[in-house]
Amino acid sequence: MTDRTRIALLLAPALLVLAGLFLTGLGLTLLRSFRYLPGLGLTEPDLAAYAAVLTAPGFLRSLALSLWIATASTVIAAVLALAAALLLRQTFPGRTLIAFLVQLNLTIPHIVGAIGILYLVSQSGSFARLAHAAGLISAPAEFPILTHDPYAIGIILLYVWKELPFITLILLANLQTLGEDHEAVARSLGASRWQAFRHVLLPMVLPGLATASALVFAFAFGAYEVPLVLGAHAPKALPVLAWQAWTDTDLASRSEAMAMAVVIAVVGLALLALVARGLRLGGQDAR
């Protein structure tokens, strides 16, 4: 067997499954978004669904909301995760426990976290009750609106809670493989702590941080169940809007759902392209 045949055989199952499921799903979504469905007698592809989606007032607001959720969640989670990773790299009492909590958090499904956040910070949640007990508020309405709110604070809070540990663990693992040599060298050459971090450590963990952040962004942008639990009635996060259009009993709105799905896919592909470029810049170390 030549290497080429062997490689082809090894890759075949994965590529077949991905082509059969992922590409087919994506392709059909695309075709239907152009209202092209020969099976149903639609043989003239057009842009009507996109036109309908783009002119509907709700869509752009939903798109903006989802981009806001993803951006805010990713930035906050990444910054905090960097701090958490630097903290956990040191030894101190209780470190093991915190490291365990960080890992445990990774196993908790998003929807569980979303419900926990809801019970914690809603206007009648645990914090509001504590505020009442402390005499800060006299009624739930006086507590800040953190869930089902137009700025999606509750949703962002959930993503920060859930993704901070994810990014932290990736960074910790990266830091472990890097060791402390480079920093030590920099410090011995007279660099300040900040300089050593900014010019030595940060560039080294940046690829890992960027990839992890891209994954987080993609998830926060496209998740359905979290805004379903914590989101406001308007504007809706884009995935919720798309699902609503898909389950509308008016079949015409299905093409619009597909068009929204394509918009979501385009954002995901853009992220993938960014990551791919970053990886190539980082050089290939495969044999």
Binding site: D3, R4, R6, I7, L11, A14, L15, L18, L21, F22, T24, G25, L26, G27, L28, T29, L30, L31, R32, A214, L215, A218, F219, F221, G222, A223, Y224, P239, A242, W243, W246, R254, A257, M258, A261, V262, I264, A265, G268, L269, L271, L272, V275, A276, R280, A286, R287
Partner: peptide, 29 residues
């Protein structure tokens, strides 16, 4: 283990589902 032509593309394809939210493909699927 191997270096081969089109490896970048294959990797990208295998990576893609991690970046494309489920909602993007589920209607077609």
């Amino acid at each position: 283990l191997y270096r081969f032509r089109g490896k970048g593309l294959v990797t990208l394809l295998l990576l893609a589902p991690a970046f494309l939210p489920g909602i993007a493909i589920v209607f077609g699927l």
